[in-house]
């Protein structure tokens, strides 16, 4: 089933130097299941990264619950951050090995790296790779870890357009081979429409789900024309989220 339920009633931060609090998330609820790919779109500063960190259990200081198949989420998750976050003093292969664990099969790791065009860089240190390559290593790490949930926080930001397009295609290929639930945060609606099964639109903070849109275009037909047309329809039919489109 792999049904992930996210239900955050309240997440706040104390403001520096005074007793006031800043509410980042309030009454945010959504579900995803059956290896769905959802994108989260929202204005900057609305708490998207806070949301991912809560799901990843990096931050458990909030009211509410996050469950997988009605049990608390204890299993492995994969997380691709905004920056590659590779250990500079470990090689590509060592970086992935550390995340996957000692009992991981080398062949499956090298297969994924080869598929991502990193077959010649297994023993390179991250400093010797371009940013695009480092991001692909981070992607490989996420897919080498056997998890039911993949979190991605604007993973392709600051790549040039053609590199980002290739990276998105590689992501979709890997996801089709190794299905899992994906939560992909982005501020780029075109990217979201190209990738997602569903898009969640978040409000300004305290953030909550404004709208939940299913992408009706079949995966093979998501050309830039079709995406533009879909956006146009969305604008007309959902005035509540017009400012996000």
């Amino acid at each position: 089933m792999n049904r992930l339920t996210v239900n955050i009633k309240n997440k706040y931060f104390p403001k520096d130097g005074c007793d006031e609090i800043f509410t980042a998330i309030k009454d945010l609820y959504f579900e995803l299941s059956n290896n769905e790919f959802i994108c989260i779109v929202g204005p900057s500063g609305c708490g998207k990264t806070t949301l991912l960190n809560a799901i990843a259990k990096l931050d458990d200081d909030f009211d509410g619950s996050i469950t997988m198949d009605n049990e608390s989420l204890n299993e492995n998750i994969s997380y691709v951050f905004q920056t590659p976050r590779l250990l500079p003093w470990r090689t590509v292969l060592e970086n992935i090995h550390l995340a996957v664990g000692e009992d991981s099969a080398l062949s499956s790791i090298t297969d994924i790296l080869q598929q991502l065009g990193l077959g010649d860089n297994l023993h390179s240190y991250p400093h010797h790779l371009s940013l695009g390559m480092q991001r692909r290593v981070a992607l490989a790490r996420a897919f080498c870890v056997p998890s039911k949930l993949l979190l991605m926080d604007e993973p392709f930001v600051s790549l040039d357009q053609s590199t980002a397009r290739k990276a998105r295609q590689l992501l979709l290929d890997l996801w089709e081979q190794q299905s899992r639930n994906v939560i992909f945060v982005t501020h780029d609606l075109n990217e979201a429409i190209e990738l997602a099964d569903r898009i969640l639109f978040l409000s300004e903070s305290p953030s909550t789900v404004l709208d939940d849109i299913k992408i009706s275009i079949p995966r093979g037909e998501r050309t830039s024309d079709n995406i533009a047309e879909f956006k146009q329809q969305l604008k007309v039919s959902n005035p509540a989220i017009q400012h996000l489109i």
């Binding site: 990843a56 259990k57 990096l58 997380y79 951050f81 976050r85 250990l87 003093w89 470990r90 550390l98």
Partner: peptide, 24 residues
Amino acid sequence: EELIEMANAYRFGRNKTLFHVILP
């Protein structure tokens, strides 16, 4: 802090975090 967060997200555990993330 970002690398430590990464280690937590991938459940490195205490020893691995110490020897591969912090001590280097």
